[in-house]
Design a protein around this nucleic acid. Structure first.
Lengths: 401, 401
DNA sequence: ACTCGGTTGGTAAGCGCTTACCGAGGCACA
DNA sequence: TGTGCCTCGGTAAGCGCTTACCAACCGAGT
C-alpha cells in the first residue's frame, strides 16, 4: 500500500459516459438515493470490482485475475488486491459473472407442492407437507452439486398455468432443470427440453430429456416373492400412489404380475387408491373397514408414507400388524426403521438418485451435444418386522462418539 | 405480420462493433463453436431478446416492454412479440435481468449439513440425514418466497473454511441470506450482515442481522408445569441438543428453572448430551442404562427426533413409555403424531418460522435502511400420550375426498 | 393550419463481471 | 548494446437484459 495512486474516480475509467462523474454511480432508478460525493467507496450499493481495483491501485482485470486464480499475478499485485477485497468486504456479483461466463452454476429443482388436504373434522392437515422422499432426493442433488460448485434453486409447483410459467422462469435462472415426478405434463417437458437441459426423476420417458429412476419392477417383484413364497400369504393388495405417477404404475404392474405368477390372489381397484401420503393410506383403510370389507393377508403400499398411515389406521381398529395383516412400504425412508413394527420395505438409493440426476444434468450442461440414455438404479428388499419376519437384531446405536 | 421489415441482422443494431457481422455472435471463448452463417436464428446458444426482436420486426425495447407489461404496447406490437417468443421458445436470461434491475429474486438459504455418524457396528448411518425440521422450515420459506416471485437457493455447509467461503459465494448469487442455526460463527455472521441482508433462524443475536425464533422459554415452561403439576413427576431430565445451539440453551434453562421452581428434581449433565438426532438420543439412553444409572421419571428431549431415538432405545430395553418413563419432544414434526406412543411435544409454528424469516428478509432487501427487531413466535404444548396423558380421541382420517 | 399534450417505438447506455488483445518491461542470448 | 521471447498489467469489448431519453406520430384544441 505504498505508492497510493489517487486513482481515477470509478466512473472515469469506463467507456465514455456522457456525464463522467455520474456514470456507473446511479442505478436504473436515478435519484432514488440522492447523489452523494463520489470521492470514496461510499457508494450506496455493494462495492464492485471497480472499487476494489481503485483501492488496490490496479486494473479491474488484475482484480478479476487474482480472484479467479488466472495467469499467476505478481505477489505484490495479488496481495494488494486481497487486502482491498478484505477491506471492502467485496463479494463478486453472481449475476454479472454468470452473464459473462454464460454459466450460472445453478440447477433448478422443481418439486410437486403437496395438495392441501382437509381431514374429516375440517382441520387443515399440514402434516402431509412432510414430503420426506423429495427432500431426501434434493439432499442427494445438493451434495453432488456442491462438488461442482453448483447450488440448488428450488421451486414447488402445483399444476396450474401460473405454475408452468414459474418453471420456465426457473429455467431462466438456472443452467438446467431437475424435475421431480408429476410437475409438468410430458408435452411441456418436451418443450422445455428443447430450451434447456432437463433431467426427470421418475418421469415419463420424453425425447430430449433424460430420466433417472429406480428399478421399481425388480424391487416389487422381490417383495412379492418374499410375501408369497416365504410367508405364504395368499392374498395381497396394492395400495397405490398417485394414479398418474409412473413409479406407481410400475410398482402396481410388477406386484400384480409376480403375485399372480406365484399363484396368489392380487387385490387392487379404485378402493385401493392412495396418494403417497399417510393420510391417504389411512383413509383407504378406514373406508374399507367402514364398508365391511375383509382385508387381504398383506398390503403392499406404494411408499413408506402410505404404509405409515395404513399401520396407524389398522392399529387404531385393533388389527395387529403383522399378526392380522402384513404391511410393507417402498423407499425405505429413514423413519421406516423406527416405526412399530419396523417397516419392511423396498430400499431405493434415494440420495444416489439425486446425485446421479445432478451428475447427468451436469454433463448435459457441459456437453450439450451428446444424447444420453435413461438411467435405472437398483433396489433391494429390506426385511423387517411388518411383513411378518422376526424382529432383526437391532443395531447397537450405543457408543460414545 | 404484414409489413415485414427486413430487420437488420442482430449484430448490426448494436453499438459500433468493430467486426459488424461477428459481434455478439461469438462468446467469450471464440472459435469454440466454429462460426456459422449469421443469417437466421440458428445461433448455437439460446435465443436472445435480439432474436425475438428481429423475428417480430420490432426493437428489443418493445420486446422487453411486452414481456414485462410496461407502457401498454399497441396490440399489434404485442401480438407480434408474443408470436416470436412462442416460435423461438424464448426464455429470458435471469442473470442478465438481475444485472440490469439489480435484483436477482433469489434468497440464499444455508442449512447445516448433518455430520456423518458411524454406528457401533461400523455401519454408515445415513438415517440421520433426515433433517426434517430444517426441511419443513425451508418449505415455509419457499411458500412465502413464491408469493413474491423469489426462489430459494440452497446450500448446506459444515464448519470448515471452505464452507464459510461457500456461504459468501452464495451471497453473491442472492439478494439476501437466511441462515439456519449453527452455520456460521457470530463474528462471521456480523461481517456478512454488513454486506448483504441476513436473517438468522434461532441464531445468536447479532448486530446488523435479525433473528427469527420461537418462544422456547414459554413452551418449555408450559411443558415443565404439565409434567410436574399435572402428572406429578418428581424427577425430570433434559436430553440436550447441540451444546452450541441457542435453542438448546434456552430450552435447557427454561426447563431447569421451571422444574426447580415447582419443587421437582432437574436432571442433566454431560451424560445427557445429545445432538438433535434420533441416534444421539438413543445413544444417551444406551449409555445411561449400560452404566447402571437409574432413569428419571420423565425425559424432556431437545427435539422430536431425539425423542424418537429415546423411545426406541427405551422400548428396546423393555421400558414402557410412558408407563416406565415419560418422554417428550419439541417441534411437533409431522411424524410425532404417528409414533407409538404418540409424542407429547411443544409445537413450534415451523412453516411460519420460515415464512416470517422470508418476509423479514424481503423487507430488508427492499428497504435496506431501516433496522429491524428480532422476532419471537409463540409455542404451545401439545399433549399426547408419551407424557402419560390418555390417548387423544384420534382424529377421523376417514373421508372420501 | 399550427401548436401542444399524450402515447408509443427506437436508440443507446449501463448493470458488474471476464477475457482477448496489445503493449511494456525484464531477461538471456548473440 | 541489440534482439527476441516471455510474462504480466491494462484497455475495452461484450455477456443479455431494462429503461432513460428522444423522436415520431396522433388527435384535439385554438
Amino acid at each position: 500500500m505504498d505508492e497510493i495512486v489517487p486513482g481515477p474516480v470509478r466512473g472515469d475509467t469506463r467507456h465514455t459516459g456522457p456525464v463522467p462523474g455520474t456514470s456507473r454511480a446511479t442505478g436504473p432508478v436515478p435519484g432514488v438515493l440522492p447523489a452523494h460525493g463520489d470521492t470514496e467507496a461510499a457508494e450506496h450499493g455493494q462495492p464492485t470490482i471497480y472499487d476494489v481495483a481503485r483501492i488496490a491501485g490496479v486494473s479491474i482485470a488484475s482484480v478479476s485475475r487474482v480472484l479467479n486464480g488466472r495467469r499467476n499475478p505478481l505477489p505484490d499485485t495479488k496481495e494488494r488486491v486481497e487486502r482491498a477485497v478484505a477491506e471492502l468486504g467485496f463479494i463478486p456479483d453472481g449475476a454479472a459473472r454468470a452473464l459473462s461466463v454464460r454459466l450460472k452454476e445453478v440447477v433448478g429443482v422443481v418439486i410437486r407442492r403437496p395438495e392441501v388436504t382437509v381431514s374429516a373434522d375440517g382441520i387443515f392437515e399440514d402434516e402431509e407437507t412432510s414430503l420426506q422422499f423429495p427432500d431426501l432426493i434434493n439432499r442427494g442433488i445438493e451434495v453432488a452439486a456442491q462438488k461442482r460448485d453448483f447450488n440448488l434453486l428450488v421451486s414447488s409447483v402445483g399444476l396450474g398455468h401460473a405454475d408452468t410459467h414459474r418453471i420456465f422462469a426457473l429455467a431462466g435462472k438456472s443452467d438446467g432443470l431437475i424435475l421431480h415426478d408429476r410437475v409438468l405434463d410430458p408435452e411441456q417437458v418436451g418443450r422445455l427440453g428443447h430450451q434447456v437441459p432437463v433431467v426427470n426423476l421418475a418421469g415419463m420417458p420424453t425425447p430430449g430429456t433424460v430420466n433417472v429412476s429406480s428399478d421399481n419392477r425388480a424391487g416389487m417383484a422381490e417383495l412379492a416373492r418374499h410375501l408369497v413364497r416365504d410367508h405364504g400369504y395368499r392374498s395381497i393388495a396394492y395400495l397405490g400412489g398417485h394414479a398418474d405417477s409412473p413409479d406407481n404404475l410400475a410398482r402396481h404392474a410388477a406386484l400384480a404380475e409376480q403375485v399372480t405368477a406365484d399363484g396368489a390372489q392380487f387385490v387392487s381397484g379404485p378402493a385401493w387408491q392412495g396418494n403417497y401420503t399417510a393420510a391417504g393410506g389411512a383413509r383407504v383403510i378406514e373406508n374399507l373397514l367402514a364398508s365391511g370389507n375383509s382385508l387381504p393377508q398383506a398390503i403392499a403400499c406404494a411408499n413408506d408414507q402410505t404404509a405409515l398411515g395404513v399401520v396407524y389406521a389398522l392399529v387404531r381398529h385393533g388389527i395387529d400388524v403383522p399378526g392380522g395383516v402384513a404391511v410393507t412400504g417402498f423407499d425405505d425412508i429413514p423413519v421406516a426403521r423406527h416405526l412399530h413394527p419396523q417397516l419392511t420395505t423396498v430400499r431405493q438409493p434415494i440420495t444416489d438418485l439425486g446425485a446421479i440426476a445432478f451428475e447427468t444434468l451436469y454433463s448435459m450442461i457441459n456437453d450439450a451435444g451428446r444424447a444420453r440414455d435413461d438411467i435405472t438404479l437398483p433396489t433391494r428388499l429390506v426385511r423387517r418386522e411388518s411383513c411378518g419376519c422376526p424382529p432383526m437384531p437391532m443395531p447397537l446405536t450405543a457408543r460414545q462418539p
